[in-house]
Amino acid sequence: MAVVSSSPILLPLRMNLGSSSPNIPLFSISSRPSNRPRPIIVFSYTEAGDGLASEEKKLLLERYGLDPDEFLSEPPPPKTRRRKELQKRGRGKSVQPPEEPKPPRATHKLLQVLGGKARRKKLLSPKGMDVRPMMEVVKGAAFDILQAASGCPAALRPGRWLDLYSGTGSVGIEAISRGCSQVHFVEMDPWVVSDVLRPNLEWTGFLDVSIIHTVRVENFLERAEQFVGKDGSFDYISITPPYTEVDYGVLMGQISKSPLIGDDTFIVVEYPSRTDMLDACGCLVKITDRRFGRTHLVIYGPTWAQKKRKP
Rank of each mutant, 00 (worst) to 15 (best):
V217P: 01
L284S: 01
P22T: 12
R32C: 10
S150N: 12
S125Y: 09
F185C: 02
P22C: 11
G128M: 09
K88W: 02
K257T: 11
V215T: 13
F71I: 03
S73W: 04
I29D: 15
P78M: 05
G172N: 03
S21Q: 13
E100N: 10
I261F: 02
T288I: 07
F234I: 01
M188Y: 12
E74N: 02
G282A: 12
D50A: 12
R91C: 08
R119W: 04
I212K: 04
S31G: 05
L66N: 11
L207K: 08
S7C: 09
L26H: 13
Q112P: 09
S233C: 14
K79T: 12
R63F: 14
I237R: 07
W203I: 09
R82P: 01
R290K: 14
Y64L: 12
P75N: 14
D231P: 00
D195P: 00
G232L: 10
T244S: 15
K88S: 13
L10A: 12
K117T: 15
L297V: 03
A53Y: 08
R119Y: 01
F266G: 03
L260H: 05
E174V: 10
W161N: 06
K139F: 04
V217K: 05
G115V: 02
F220Y: 10
L124N: 05
N23H: 13
R274H: 11
E55D: 08
Q182T: 06
I287R: 00
N200K: 02
A118Q: 01
E74W: 01
R290G: 03
L110Y: 11
Y248C: 10
R120V: 08
V113W: 14
G282T: 14
S94G: 13
T244A: 15
V3G: 03
P190G: 09
P158Y: 11
V138W: 04
E99Q: 11
I237T: 02
V246P: 05
D189L: 01
I299D: 05
S256E: 15
G90M: 02
V4Q: 11
T80Q: 15
R83T: 10
F234T: 03
I29E: 15
P39F: 03
V246R: 15
C283T: 14
R198I: 09
R63H: 13
I9M: 08
F43R: 00
P104T: 14
A141R: 09
V42M: 07
T80C: 08
S30Q: 15
M15T: 14
T168K: 08
Q182F: 10
P190N: 12
S34C: 05
K310R: 07
C283Y: 06
L86W: 11
N23Q: 13
